[in-house]
């Protein structure tokens, strides 16, 4: 039986602001699952704390809403236990670049076969608009009317500095392109990092659709990291699309000497083990 978009809908009342970019991100996510013919029971989404996390009851599937900054390691734990599941770590720019930035770095380095979906709305929105590493430096924010004193982080540049195997950028007002990116990301065997430029009408109204429309441009896939870096650092345009992909590096589980040829998953293997053969080295 074909999977339908309705399979992913819930009847829980949504709490996002009107015009929030999260609506179309979820639309694209559901559409991608449908097009990949994945039933809700075959996917796992770990949610962070933030506006993105408040979407946990808007979508069907195996879902775990954990702690701020931790959706990535939680997703990795789930993936390692059962790699047959399609695992997505859903996180905002705040949780990803602040509380949980070490997890992002090591997930890319380890190349776990998961998808990290970063909602980049350029602020901590759920706590009413504090600055993040992606907020424009001069922009007045909560408690700092003269803008932030710190510099910024370009997500693409950070990710590409870590020798990733997949980096893509989407835009929340282009769910069609985002669906395609999500499908490619989920099919990628390794850690796929997808940054979504997201509209936040409440705390970042300056960066509205008109603002983005002038800057968004599609990029073709780049064959080298340095070309990809130049693309994401462009000061005039915000390039979207699959910007970099390396299919040659094995993912973490296929790099593990004692697991790579295993046909079973850790979740299938929980049973009593006779340890007698291990005791000789203790005699």
């Amino acid at each position: 039986m074909a999977v339908k978009i309705e399979d992913y809908n819930t009847n829980i009342k949504n709490t996002w602001c009107p015009g929030c970019g999260n609506f179309s991100i979820h639309m694209a996510l559901k559409q991608a699952f449908v097009e990949l013919n994945l039933t809700p029971s075959e996917i796992v989404i770990t949610f962070d704390i933030g506006c993105n996390g408040n979407g946990v009851d808007d979508i069907e599937g195996n879902r775990f809403k954990g702690l701020h900054g931790r959706s990535v390691p939680l997703a990795i734990g789930a993936h390692l236990a059962n790699s047959k599941m399609k695992v997505i770590a859903d996180i905002g720019d705040g949780g990803c670049l602040h509380e949980g930035v070490d997890h992002l770095i090591h997930a890319i380095r380890s190349n776990y076969d998961i998808t990290i979906l970063i909602h980049n709305n350029q602020n901590f929105a759920l706590t009413t608009g504090q600055a993040t590493s992606t907020t424009k430096e001069e922009k007045p924010m909560y408690a700092f009317p003269d803008g932030k004193a710190e510099g910024s982080i370009n997500i693409g540049e950070l990710v590409l500095s870590l020798n990733p195997t997949f980096f893509a950028r989407g835009y929340s007002n282009d769910p069609k392109q985002l669906t395609e990116i999500l499908k490619q990301g989920m099919n990628h065997k390794g850690c796929s990092v997808i940054e979504v430029m997201q509209i936040c009408p409440t705390y970042n109204p300056q960066s509205n659709h008109d603002w983005f429309k002038e800057r968004i441009a599609q990029s073709a896939i780049k064959s080298t990291i340095s070309e990809a870096v130049a693309t994401v650092k462009d000061t005039e345009k915000i390039y979207t699309g699959i910007i970099y992909q390396n299919r040659n590096r094995p993912d973490f589980l296929n790099n593990l000497e004692n697991r790579k040829s295993k046909k079973t998953e850790l979740v299938d293997e929980v049973k009593q083990v006779d340890i007698k053969s291990l005791l000789s080295s203790f005699k």
């Binding site: 390691p73 939680l74 236990a81």
Partner: peptide, 11 residues
């Protein structure tokens, strides 16, 4: 977190 994720998943 890895332990929690793996235990949740059922191993």
């Amino acid at each position: 977190q890895l332990v929690m994720g793996s235990m949740y998943m059922g191993t």
